[in-house]
Design a protein around this nucleic acid. Structure first.
Lengths: 161, 161
DNA sequence: ATTTATGCAAAACTTTTGCATGGGA
DNA sequence: TCCCATGCAAAAGTTTTGCATAAAT
C-alpha cells in the first residue's frame, strides 16, 4: 500500500501534522528521511534512542542512510521538536518529544521505565524567570528521578519480579 | 571553614564534603581518581562536559587514566551526584551537579550560556507524583530553553530591566 | 531549473573492556 | 592482608564528513 497517486500524500502521516507544518514554515523541505524519522518518533510516543530510530528507519525504508537520520535528529532538536536526554547512561541519547515545547516525566533509575505527566504548574516560575533573567523562554524539560513500586520489590523485598 | 590537617586530607577538598561522605557511606573507596574528578566538578561549578573533565583531570594528575574518569563519572551519576545532560547537541554530555538531589537552570539555545536558579517550587508536584505513581522520588532536573537578551540583539532588547 | 538534502563509506571521536597490578580500608 | 579500583591500550560503538547525485519546491 503506497499512496503515490498524489505526490503529497504520505502513509500514516496527516498533512496537518504540526511538526510538518513547522518544518515547512521554517523553510525546510519535506523529505523521505525527515518524514520517516518523524513517523518513527511518533510511533514510539516520543521516547526512543538514536540507535532505535536508526533501526526502525532502516526497517521502514532501507534506502535512507544513517547520516540522514542523524542530520534529521539534529534538525528536529534545533527546531525544538525533540530533545536528547540521558535515560540510560549509555552512549546513545534518548530523544523525547517536546509536545507544545515542553516535556515532563518520572524515570525509574532502576528499570528505566518512565511515566509521563501533563501538569507541571511551571507557568508562574517561567514568567518570573523570563522577567528576572530577561530570557525569552521557549520550552522546558522536567525530569524526576526515583524508584518505582516494582523495583522497590513486591513486598519491599530485594527480589525482582 | 577548613578543618584539614590530618594525613588523609587532600588539597582543596574538605573532609566534610557531602559527596565524599556519601561515597564512603555507600561503601566505595576514596581514590585519587574519584577525588580529582570531584575536585574538577566542583571547580567548574558543576557544569562541565566529559571531554573537559578528561582534560582537567589529565592536567591535575596525568597518572589518572581516562577509563577511570569515565568509570567515576558513571559512579557519580549512579550515586546521584551528577547528571549527564545535552547542552550542546554534540556527542559529549555535559554533567551538572545535583545539589541536594536537584538542579535547575535556564539555557540559552543560541550561546549555550546557562543561568542556574534555586527555587523551583516543585515540592507539591513531587509529593503528588510520588503518591499517584507510587514512585519514590529522589531528585529532579528542570531545564528551561530560551534565548537570552544578548542573543536577541542589543537594540532588539525589550524595555525590561 | 534551482538548490537543498541525501546516500555512501570512511574518518573522527567518545566510551568501554579485559587483565595484571597498585593502593585503600 | 584483602580485594576494590586503577591504568593501559585496544576494541567497540556512535556520530560526523566530503562529495557526487537525487529530489523537493
Amino acid at each position: 500500500m503506497r499512496a503515490a497517486h498524489k505526490a503529497k500524500d504520505k502513509p500514516g502521516m496527516p498533512a496537518d501534522n504540526p511538526y510538518i507544518q513547522s518544518l515547512k514554515q521554517a523553510g525546510y523541505r519535506l523529505t523521505q528521511a525527515r518524514l520517516t524519522v518523524l513517523e518513527v518518533l511518533e510511533a514510539e510516543h516520543g521516547h526512543i534512542t538514536s540507535a532505535d530510530v536508526l533501526k526502525q528507519v532502516e526497517r521502514i525504508n532501507p534506502a535512507i542512510g544513517r547520516a540522514s537520520v542523524f542530520r534529521t535528529l539534529e534538525l528536529f532538536t534545533q527546531l525544538g521538536f525533540i530533545r536528547p536526554t540521558y535515560i540510560h547512561t549509555s552512549v546513545t541519547p534518548t530523544y523525547v518529544m517536546m509536545h507544545g515545547g515542553h516535556h515532563h516525566h518520572v524515570i525509574c533509575t532502576e528499570c528505566k521505565r518512565f511515566f509521563e505527566f501533563a501538569n507541571c504548574g511551571l507557568d508562574v516560575l517561567k514568567a518570573n524567570l523570563q522577567r528576572e533573567l530577561d530570557v525569552q523562554i521557549r520550552g522546558h524539560l522536567l525530569e524526576f528521578y526515583g524508584v518505582c513500586a516494582d523495583c522497590r520489590g513486591p513486598s519491599h523485598a530485594e527480589q525482582k519480579a
